[in-house]
Design a protein around this nucleic acid. Sequence first.
DNA 1: GGGATTGATCTTGTATACCATATGCCGCAC
DNA 2: GTGCGGCATATGGTATACAAGATCAATCCC
Lengths: 229, 229
Amino acid sequence: MSRSVGAADAIGRADRSLAAQIYDELRRRIIEGEIPAGTWLRERELAEEFSVSRIPLREALPQLEAEGFIVTHPRRGAVVRELTVRDATEYFDVKSSLEVLAARSAASRVRAGADTARLGGAWAAAQAAMAAGDDRAIAEANARVHDEIVELADNRLLASSLRPLHGLQRWFFGVTSDRDQTALAQEHAALVAAICDGDVEYAGSLAYAHIEKSRRESLPLLAERLPAG
Amino acid sequence: MSRSVGAADAIGRADRSLAAQIYDELRRRIIEGEIPAGTWLRERELAEEFSVSRIPLREALPQLEAEGFIVTHPRRGAVVRELTVRDATEYFDVKSSLEVLAARSAASRVRAGADTARLGGAWAAAQAAMAAGDDRAIAEANARVHDEIVELADNRLLASSLRPLHGLQRWFFGVTSDRDQTALAQEHAALVAAICDGDVEYAGSLAYAHIEKSRRESLPLLAERLPAG
DNA sequence: GGGATTGATCTTGTATACCATATGCCGCAC
DNA sequence: GTGCGGCATATGGTATACAAGATCAATCCC
């Protein structure tokens, strides 16, 4: 079978394996709500849609299950999981712990002489986006600030632990989140400053406050549109 | 091909999927050192050894990669990763954060009326094993105490975040770890008491001290036998 | 003699066809 | 109305074939 040119071209001709591309594509569709909770995912159906054989799907679907996006029912198929308020609570709990660690580690590494150029650059981009008033750009810049903090923390295990949380976040909130992106950027300002100062304790406290503020603002909104779980 | 009865019977006839069984078996072999770091894992070779087709392996190997046990080189195969001191440091950092959360959450749930019977039972088993002087049993009971704390915390996301750490722990230390299991059990005593009292702050502090003590005792020993990374 | 090239070989990546088996549903008998 | 049996369907798994990237060694040219 040729590699699909027409309708199924959602998966491009990237140099990555088909399984990885399909994983990415399905993950994106679930996160962005194109595939709503409760949808059944059938191997052969998806294989046909993507114009691939079942093999790549048999690698991609278990990965999606491992990250908690779908639940597999043996011999019945996989169904997209439904997010609940409980998931959100768990998310904020774990996120809080790990983000504090990231902020503290980043500050600690700065104290040990790490380069803050990239983080500074990301933060500058956020400021520029704020000045321009481009909400989408602010959201993207905020996300990059976050990524750069994790990068600066230089802990691969931490980064891999945060990855599923990142997916959850976008699943919950979409790209922009419920919060005012400008307010988010303001909080980032203090956090970035503390990290660049190498102030471990302060950076950790700010990160904690940052997440807890998000929790308090977002949870009530989520509770309105999500089942309790 | 029939389902293997002879030498390949490491994977039993459990009701789980072949991929899951093979994942478990490979994971166990890596963790227990039967497959040393640097070993190349070849699909067809393993398929033949386990008397299965390549399909289950194509599901199992990506899972092992996702959990950090192997590194896949496209079109070359997968190689068992080598643990480094850096991995150990990262492990303790993340472990510290998440175990504190587990202890605090567990205590908080007790305060809200959760049942402590299972945790109490696990702790009683550890005491019994200590009285009997059975080191292996103490180690197992200690592990169960830990599991019950996570269970009591009742946070599935936290539990799934801790799972890879648990694998890392056994990979680093084997079943018994480097530490004196009786000393470990003593520390568990105070932690379990604090949790059962619903004392959130104290439980968190004890969990933190517990991990940091492990770090300080174990890291120098690991540094002797692991490359720096 | 040394470095670039080519080709053999190994391994994964993917497709295809087929069989086995569990699950759920529908309709029939009672 | 209820219980049972069979059928449709989906995954779980096997076998096989072929394509293509990676490696390495032999070879060829200068």
